[in-house]
Amino acid sequence: MQKITPFLWFDNQAEQAVHFYASVFKNAKVGKVARYGEAGPGPAGSVMVATFEIEGLAFTALNGGPNFKFTPAVSFVIDCKSQAEVDYFWEKLAEGGRTDQCGWLQDRFGLSWQVTPTVLIEMLNDPDPAKSQRVMAAMMQMTKIEIPKLHEAYEAA
Rank of each mutant, 00 (worst) to 15 (best):
A73D: 08
C80G: 09
I4W: 07
C102D: 02
A130F: 10
R98D: 04
Y36Q: 11
F109M: 05
G64F: 05
P43S: 14
P43E: 15
A14N: 02
A50L: 10
I54N: 06
A44S: 13
V49C: 08
L105V: 08
T60W: 09
I54H: 07
T71E: 03
G42T: 08
T51A: 06
K131T: 01
G103W: 00
Q2S: 15
S75F: 08
K92D: 09
P148Y: 07
Q13I: 06
R98A: 08
L93S: 10
S46L: 13
L150P: 04
P66L: 05
E15Q: 14
A22M: 00
S23I: 00
V49S: 07
G110T: 05
L105Q: 02
G37F: 06
G31M: 04
M139L: 04
M142W: 04
T71R: 04
L62Y: 13
K149D: 11
G40C: 10
F25W: 08
T118V: 15
Q133W: 03
G56E: 13
A137K: 06
T118A: 11
I121N: 12
T118Q: 10
F109E: 04
T99S: 10
K26T: 10
V33Y: 03
P129A: 11
F70A: 05
A156V: 02
M1W: 07
W90G: 13
Y154V: 05
K3L: 15
W113I: 03
A22F: 01
D126N: 15
G64I: 07
E91C: 08
V86D: 02
K144D: 07
K131E: 00
Q133V: 04
N12E: 10
Y36M: 12
E15M: 10
E15G: 07
V135W: 01
P6R: 12
N63F: 02
W90Q: 13
L111P: 01
I54W: 09
M139D: 00
M142E: 05
K131Q: 01
H151N: 13
A50S: 14
K144A: 12
S112A: 14
L124Y: 05
R134W: 01
A14H: 00
A50K: 09
A44K: 15
S46P: 09
Y88Q: 09
D128T: 11
R108G: 08
K69N: 12
